[in-house]
Nucleic acid binder design. Structure first.
Lengths: 136, 136
DNA sequence: ATGCGTGCAAACGATTTGCAGAGAA
DNA sequence: TTCTCTGCAAATCGTTTGCACGCAT
């Protein structure tokens, strides 16, 4: 439960940018494998392990957001680095959008009632994006 | 992305109750493996696969909540079956509490601005529980 | 020569599945 | 007998790691 793993490997390198760009090109959250496929399909050549390594590093630096789903971790370019925001994810196509948080004071209040001190939270909203709604 | 997997296996059985009880006994979210260990340590005997099968079934029926973290899925007895609620999770010991949602209208509003129709959402609040705070 | 980023393939760890045995109906 | 729950072991699958090669300093 207490983490903080420092990767003895990898610092930067040309592929870092390749991954960063590919990630920026995607609309929603993508898995490392999907991204790997897209990169190679797009002409560039990169190894799966390298994609994992760079995605991990990007996420650690706060340049990418990640969410965990049953099938693994998904990544997305963090459009507002450092800024607090949440995600709106299309159930059907995976497209995602950032949404600004509203009043979140109730979170601290509710937590206090349970004797908790809040460190951070995550809100994920699922639904259908306009395009998927149209094509149904 | 479109789910709805019906398990051709398992309906009920004596072990279902074993799993349900063991799950009810735990404070926070537990992994299938942890639960498997605890069950066997508690005198009962059960196979890991069976634990997975029943946990999956319980979650499907709404008798258990689950969250996905990097290391896999975690389960917890759903204390208010069917009722909408969110989770407050202790970063340090994993203890969890249910919290009642506050006004969530802003979610639909924000979604609408992006052309989304909301189907569901999830709020996970992380922090430190009273006990962990005390022992630090 | 030395160091570091990469790719490939092997290693891993969590979860799922195939299959045979046991007990209930 | 017949059906279904179980357990075990094998199979999957996403992710990580070991190691050797190649370019840049």
């Amino acid at each position: 439960m207490t983490s903080e793993t420092v990767r003895p490997d990898l610092r930067e390198g040309p592929k870092r940018e390749t991954v960063r760009r590919a990630l920026a090109r995607t609309d929603g959250f993508v898995s490392a494998q999907q991204l790997h496929l897209e990169i190679n399909a797009g002409g560039d050549s990169i190894g799966l392990a390298t994609v994992y390594r760079h995605l991990g590093a990007l996420a650690e630096q706060g340049d990418a957001d990640t969410i965990s789903v049953a099938s693994g971790q998904l990544f997305r370019t963090c459009t507002r680095p450092g800024a607090h925001h949440h995600h709106l994810i299309c159930d059907s196509c995976g497209t995602a959008a950032d949404i600004a948080p509203a009043d979140e004071e109730w979170i601290r209040t509710a937590a206090r009632e349970h004797g908790f001190t809040v460190t951070h939270h995550r809100i994920e909203v699922f639904g259908r994006c306009r395009e998927c709604l149209d094509s149904e």
